[in-house]
């Protein structure tokens, strides 16, 4: 079984994230890392492999991003993925989800014979939660997305999806696109052994021409939507803080709510 895990390299959410003057996300000034939510995808891929002991299962970590994104792929290798692929090309910079999904789809096709494309539920920077659905559309594969639980037997997959109004069990046959939520189970930390082993694992960098994706359709100028303006929200200023003493807190709270006409 051939598993591709899509991992994104994102600016650290705990740092001050900003935009460049062309309104693209600043990926230079802020330290980057493997999107936390994609660690859950790597974890589920590893568990799939572990459950299929004796079967030939290979996990490829795939990332579309700048050269520095190698770090995200490396982390996936440290966690236990078998090989890594980074698609980096100047023409990709500024692509939106539509463009990113085209590159990912091209890379998956170039890898060939992929049974499961495993994704996170959302990237922690863009957070559109659309790339897995777009990938399924582009590759004409079934999507079993936003799984909080994954079960499989042979090429049959069943996932639990906790929707807005109901919890559903979705079934499909591989090849398919699967995405997992942060409810699917804690992701492991790379072990010392894993970190050492990762140094020897293959990590290739591909350009667009390597995978046969047309650069003309990509990048900021070809994006199908355009950002006109980005503006930092004024930070919230701290209001009144009271300390509760013998019920004074509740009284002050109700007083505040009444003054704002919430009561």
């Amino acid at each position: 079984m051939n598993i591709v895990v899509c991992v994104k390299y994102v600016p650290d959410a705990t740092a001050d994230r900003t935009f460049e003057s062309d309104h693209t996300v600043d990926r230079q000034g802020v330290p980057g890392l493997l999107s936390e939510l994609d660690e859950y995808a790597v974890e589920q891929a590893l568990q799939l492999k572990e459950k299929r002991e004796g079967e030939d299962v290979e996990i490829t970590a795939l990332c579309v991003g700048p050269a520095s994104a190698e770090e995200a792929v490396r982390k996936a290798l440290q966690m236990g993925a078998d090989k890594g692929v980074l698609v980096a090309d100047d023409a990709i910079a500024g692509s939106d989800a539509v463009g990113t999904s085209a590159v990912l789809a091209g890379a998956v096709q170039h890898i060939g014979g992929v049974d499961v494309i495993m994704c996170g539920m959302a990237s922690t920077d863009g957070a559109m939660s659309v790339v897995p659905a777009m990938l399924a559309e582009r590759l004409d594969l079934p999507q079993v997305t936003l799984a909080s639980k994954v079960e499989s037997q042979g090429d049959q997959f069943r996932i639990q999806r906790d929707g807005d109004t109901s919890t559903e069990v979705i079934g499909a046959t591989a090849p398919l696109v699967l995405s997992v939520t942060d409810q699917s189970g804690e992701a492991r930390y790379p072990s010392f052994k894993g970190i050492m082993a990762a140094k020897k694992k293959p990590l290739e960098t591909w350009s667009l021409s390597d995978i046969g994706v047309d650069a003309g359709d990509l990048g900021l100028s070809a994006a199908w939507s355009e950002v006109a303006d980005t503006e930092a929200r004024p930070p919230r200023s701290q209001g009144e803080i009271v300390t509760d003493e013998d019920g004074s807190g509740a009284e002050a709270l109700v007083g505040f709510l009444a003054s704002k006409k919430f009561i």
């Binding site: 209001g239 009271v242 019920g247 509740a250 709270l253």
Partner: peptide, 25 residues
Amino acid sequence: ELVDFGVVGDLKTVLPAATEEITKR
């Protein structure tokens, strides 16, 4: 850091007391 109004206190005493006061009002 982001509140318009904050109470430093135990929710187990503050909330029931506030609930009672609101219901009364």
